[in-house]
Design a protein around this nucleic acid. Structure first.
Lengths: 246, 246
DNA sequence: GCCCCTAATTGATCTGGATCAAGGTACATC
DNA sequence: GATGTACCTTGATCCAGATCAATTAGGGGC
């Protein structure tokens, strides 16, 4: 994993204008300029878009995880979304990115140049229908997260995050493990803190507490095993039947 | 203003099945059963939908304000959205409401029965386009609010809420007052607390502090005058040019 | 193996906002 | 005017989580 190259100049070889020039763009690939659809890869930790950047494409996550974050002038930052495979990035009709996008893990995006994509939306009904569905899902997720941020205790926040990640992981590898579940935590303690509106010390302490109480079992820092999923749900403060009603 | 009638039975006279029977429904109006589109009015404080209710319509706010709230088993509640005139309520394809909807002020909705509305979406492209736009706007608002909930201090939260309400009010009564702005606060201290993830005591104290510091001027409890809008913005912790970039 | 560097834990202390507890105020009803 | 009542303010105290400050793993690269 060689570090990404940052030089804060515009990229002349792909339709993305960004401060960081990605490894792929260092070797011009002219087809990027021609086709509506193309792929781009990023390394873990690499910035994809900065808030305020010109944004000439929309994209869909193919593999990996990206984060959306907002940062205040004094450095306080809040993660406002996690993009997993099949999630959508960008907004038709918007030219300026309203928040930072960063590759959390190694990441591949399937990009569409914005203008042609907007034309596609106008002409192909099922594409815009699908996009509406996805946007509504994201809105639901954002609203659910507002409850987490506004009203839950630190312990409940950690439990909520773990249960969401566990559920998504289980969903991705469709092979459901029969009981319990084990997965790699894709986020650092600091990233978790930024997602939950906590400090990294509090995140660490609460994870230790959940481990001490037997709710989770850690293997190293990043591998989590959940012996009893219902036990974890009970810690989130959510209604146990929440899944049924929604 | 006579109080609404609550009797926790299904309403047989309109397509809404809810625990509280509204004043309008006490007198059957059969046309509700016939037409795709119809109007409904609610009094301030009246519940419109409870989480878990069957939801056979979608709607658009005509006049007044409605709130979306989530409540935990132990009573902690978080407001996750405010619906103002022209905002959309409900979701095509969803039959069960995922959160409570309440009339904050006197309210009139323009309702559409869900099934025919979904058919309309399939056939009329610009309607689904418009709905996508609105949903994306709401998603942006929700994400902006996540920063408020996760990272801002109590004082910054209050300032953020006031500036948002002031901006929307100014937008509604297109007649821009040349300097400063004056508006009615549509929310109780408790509702503000639920929106901001605070207690009502903290809300009250911070409003008093902003008043003491001359950032806002109160006339009674509900009328707010903002002598210098930039001063208020400075208190939100946001970038002053945030409006330009977004 | 050893070194280096980043990520994570853990402890001690501080503080912003919650909690508990009185009062005060604006309105509506009689 | 008196009485209610819902809403709001203000004070005293407490505590969950922030902040400050060391250590202690992990995990490459050599």
């Amino acid at each position: 994993m060689k570090p990404p190259v940052f030089n804060n100049r515009e990229c002349g070889t792909c339709p993305i204008r960004h401060r960081a020039v990605c490894a792929r763009c260092e070797e011009p690939e002219l087809e990027y300029l021609e086709s509506i659809k193309y792929y781009r890869s990023y390394e873990a930790g690499q910035p994809i878009i900065w808030s305020g950047d010109q944004l000439d494409f929309v994209a869909s996550v193919v593999v990996g995880i990206a984060s959306l974050t907002q940062t205040m002038e004094d450095g306080r930052t809040q993660m406002i979304g996690l993009l997993l495979p099949s999630d959508f990035l960008g907004r038709p009709g918007r030219e300026i990115a309203p928040y930072d996008v960063t590759a959390v893990s190694n990441l591949t995006l399937c990009c569409f140049r914005r203008k042609p994509f907007e034309k596609l939306l106008d002409t192909t009904h099922h594409v815009s229908q699908r996009l509406l569905e996805m946007t509504l899902d994201e809105l639901d997720a954002a609203r659910e997260w507002m409850l987490v941020l506004g009203r839950k205790t630190a312990r409940e926040k950690i439990a909520s995050l773990l249960s969401i990640i566990a559920r998504r992981e289980a969903h991705l590898n469709m092979a459901r493990s029969p009981d319990g579940s084990k997965f790699d935590l894709p986020l650092t303690r600091e990233a978790m803190a930024n997602y939950l509106g906590l400090t990294l010390e509090t995140v660490s302490r609460q994870i230790s507490a959940l481990k001490r109480d037997g709710v989770i079992i850690l293997e190293g820092n990043r591998k989590v095993f959940i012996p009893d999923f219902n036990r974890l749900i009970a810690e989130t403060g959510d209604d146990a039947d929440g899944g049924l009603l929604t």
